[in-house]
Each structure stands twice: as C-alpha cells, then as structure tokens.
C-alpha cells in the first residue's frame, strides 16, 4: 500500500492530518513530520525514521513549501530513492484527492497530476466566484 508523508515547518503537518481525517476518516498509511518543534531533534533523523519504517512501499511526500528547508531536504533524496514522489504545497483539497483516489488509481504519476490539477482549481477568490456563478438549477 502506498504510504503518505506530510512534512512541514512546525505543527502544520499534524494539524492538516487531523483536518483531513475529520473529512475522510482515519487512515493508517499516513505519517507526519513536524520539523523544528522539539529541541535536539534533527529533521534528517525524522526523515530517516520514516524512510526506514515505510520500506519497501512507494512514498508520496507532501511538504509545506517549495524552496523551504523541509522540501529541500527531501529533494536531496529523490534522485537516489525512486520510491519517493515529492510534492510541494501542502493543502487540504490536494490531500483529499490524493488519499481518496489512491485506493483506485494504480498509476502514481497520473494520481499526482490529477490531484494537483484539481487542487489548483479549488483555490478561489469566493467573492468573484459567487459573482460569476449563474449556475442553472439542475433537474432529473
């Protein structure tokens, strides 16, 4: 089974996991890495622990910030670990799509491409969206 890792600066990763599971229910294939919250705990060793624990499964890692140190740390691992897929830009629509579609989509690249597309489309300036929405009433 594919494994997911949410990784962030501070407690964001743990918080968004909580939010996700409120919506889609508890999942056993998610790990979180909250960086820089405990003195003396190195990000490198947090990552190493997750990598070892999830062998040999495919790993989809979602970090909070492209260019941030957490993402950079994983970037170093992608080249030598073909089982790691790295996505930057942790957000709830993305996670809902990834985790729920993961059960039925065999192709990991397609899973990620679709989820990214949907997540990007779900970011909206709602005031404008409501102005523009002249959605017709549907009937059977």
């Amino acid at each position: 089974m594919r494994q997911f890792v949410f990784a962030s600066h501070g407690f964001f990763a743990e918080g968004i996991r909580h939010a996700l599971e409120l919506i889609i229910g508890k999942r056993t294939n998610i790990s979180t890495i909250c960086a820089y919250v405990e003195q003396g705990v190195e990000l490198k060793s947090q990552i190493q622990e997750v990598l070892e624990r999830t062998v040999p499964h495919e790993l989809i890692v979602i970090t909070d910030l492209f260019g941030g140190s957490v993402n950079n740390e994983f970037m170093n691992l992608v080249a030598e670990n073909p089982r790691i897929h790295l996505i930057a830009g942790l957000n709830l629509p993305l996670l809902i799509d990834l985790v729920t579609m993961s059960d039925t989509q065999e192709n990991t690249e397609a899973l990620i491409e679709d989820a990214l597309k949907n997540a990007k489309a779900s970011m909206q300036y709602c005031n404008l969206t409501m102005q523009k929405t002249k959605a017709e009433d549907e009937d059977f």
Binding site: N118, T129, M130, T133, A135, D137, E138, D139, F140
Partner: peptide
C-alpha cells in the same frame, strides 16, 4: 444557501435541489 451548495458540488456529479 443554494449558491453555496452548488459551489460545493463535486465535479462530475449532478446536483438537484
């Protein structure tokens, strides 16, 4: 309320109110 619900509709699903 109708507009809000319509906007929350999942893609590819018909919504009747």
């Amino acid at each position: 309320r109708k507009t809000t619900i319509k906007l929350a509709k999942p893609q590819g699903v018909k919504l009747v109110i």
